[in-house]
Amino acid sequence: MKAATYKGPSKPYLEVKEVPTPKPGPGEILVRVAATGICHSDIHLFKGDFGPVREGFIPGHEISGWVEDFGPDVKNPWGLRKGDPVIVSWIVPDGICKYCASGKENYCPAAAGRMPGLVGINGGHAEYITIPEIAVIPLEKGVDIYYAAPIACAYGTAYHALREAGVGPGTSLVVIGAGGVGLSAIQLASAMGAYPIIAVDIRDFALEKAKELGATHVINSTKEDPISRIRDVLPDGADVIHEARPEPDLKLSMEVVARAGTIVVTGLGGPKSTFTVNVLPFVINGVRIMGSLGYRPRLDLPEIIKLVASGKVDVRKLVSHTYVPEQINEAYENLERGLHARAIVKWG
């Protein structure tokens, strides 16, 4: 099969070549890949921020495709059949630990050691992938399978963060960083009834996209003072701030969060990134600051898929660039230059 494999931490990071097609082992499903997303976490991976990556590793962790084959001992709780459209979660929980039992499967210790395309197991930048069946989630008919790939990362991450922060009808929301996760958050929050939704970024085209996806106000923080603009709209601050930029620092968030408000952070930062928080306003305003990793594959992903299937969230609006496998290094180049809202690579 054709696959994009890791070469090393200097550019070009990847090499597109023929590799053996994997066979599904016990409890695994073979998925024929339709599309994969180009995600900022991959850049961290390529540069070695998550630890050394072996040469030949297949990245790609936002995956959509079709069920191709089943390994032995598959329990198949969703009743999947060959040819069914699915998305593949990069969070692969064991399904049996206390975290899984309490619905926090994104924090399952087993999942931390095996993230397709990120840690341990090969990802989806290929024509096929084998994956433990717990990570395979059916897609509703009628959802565009290619544009569905970002559901398994950008949308999932955004949705879980918004849910954890308590976003619902009438929640005032500020999203800092209108990249893939931030834009997904804006689109989902709009469907969930949040109002107003203020997007902050330094790129005009990203803010244009934010408006298209449901932001009620957009602020280019290189051209306008975001603190005073946000206070004009929300004199008492925002109920929820989503720090979705790659290098979150909480500075703007702490200025504009409402009393008893929540700051939820999904940007991973670099290996040495830290925040500084002024203690007094943090305590007297009862601010909640929380990290949020990924999503709960068996709980969050089906809910997002329903939002998409119902027409409330149009996933085609998020994707700004589509590439063929041979352009994959160019795709990451453009990602690093900040050109994408979200990009996908079509494999099948």
């Binding site: 003072d225 603190i227 008492d236 306003p281």
Partner: peptide, 18 residues
């Protein structure tokens, strides 16, 4: 300032508190 009877329309609230 803390009770927002004086509204900080522009500038860092966190610096002001210091």
């Amino acid at each position: 300032i803390l009770s927002r009877k004086i509204r900080v329309k522009k500038g860092s609230f966190l610096t002001l508190v210091q």
